[in-house]
């Protein structure tokens, strides 16, 4: 657990408090699991092409084949970027989220669609901080999953120090 404690303060988000942070699944909308303290953006989501054409929305949706980097000139105006996972096997969205964080985006990045509990740990690491799974997740398993790994081997977008940094810190 040691590393998580350190990181919780490093990126201002509390990974450990998953069980508390998440409200129970709602009745008729997909449960939204958020790891942010600000209010969720509930405005309309623009598809990327529409956003790039007129560009006034504060929330945009990326499909797997979309180029996340085309948003870089507009990141200051965006509050929410939703990344679609039509099939959990399609891993392009992981690169999309990490590239957005690498570009300095601090707004909400949401994984939506075929988001499974066994992917959440990877998704948190590449910078997703909210989840709209098509099938509601068991929050106790989510909590278990996110607390699983005491250390990581590589840098990503979550501020965790890789073991090579801990070894030589």
């Amino acid at each position: 657990m040691g590393n998580h404690d350190r990181v919780a303060s490093a990126d201002g988000q509390d990974q450990v408090a998953v069980g508390n942070a998440a409200a129970p699944p709602l009745d008729d909308t997909p449960a939204l699991l958020r790891f942010r303290s600000d209010a969720p953006d509930d405005g309309p989501l623009s598809p990327l092409a529409d956003f790039l054409a007129d560009g006034n929305a504060a929330a945009v949706r990326l499909d797997p084949a979309d180029d996340a980097r085309s948003l870089i000139p507009h990141l200051g105006r965006l509050r929410l970027i939703e990344v679609a996972f039509p099939k959990f096997r399609d891993g392009r969205g992981y690169s999309a989220a990490r590239m957005l964080r690498e570009a300095g985006f601090t707004g909400e990045i949401r994984a939506a669609g075929d988001v499974l509990v066994d992917q959440i740990g990877f998704m948190r690491r590449v910078g997703f901080d909210s989840f709209a799974p098509a099938k509601p997740l068991d929050l106790s398993v989510v909590k278990l999953t996110l607390e699983r790994y005491p250390y990581v081997y590589q840098k990503a977008a979550d501020g965790l120090q890789p073991v090579w940094a801990l070894r030589h810190g």
């Binding site: 096997r89 399609d90 891993g91 992981y94 992917q119 990877f122 590449v126 081997y153 590589q154 990503a156």
Partner: peptide, 8 residues
């Protein structure tokens, strides 16, 4: 090992 971006 468990690379978060390259596991799918």
């Amino acid at each position: 090992t468990l690379h978060p971006e390259f596991s799918f």
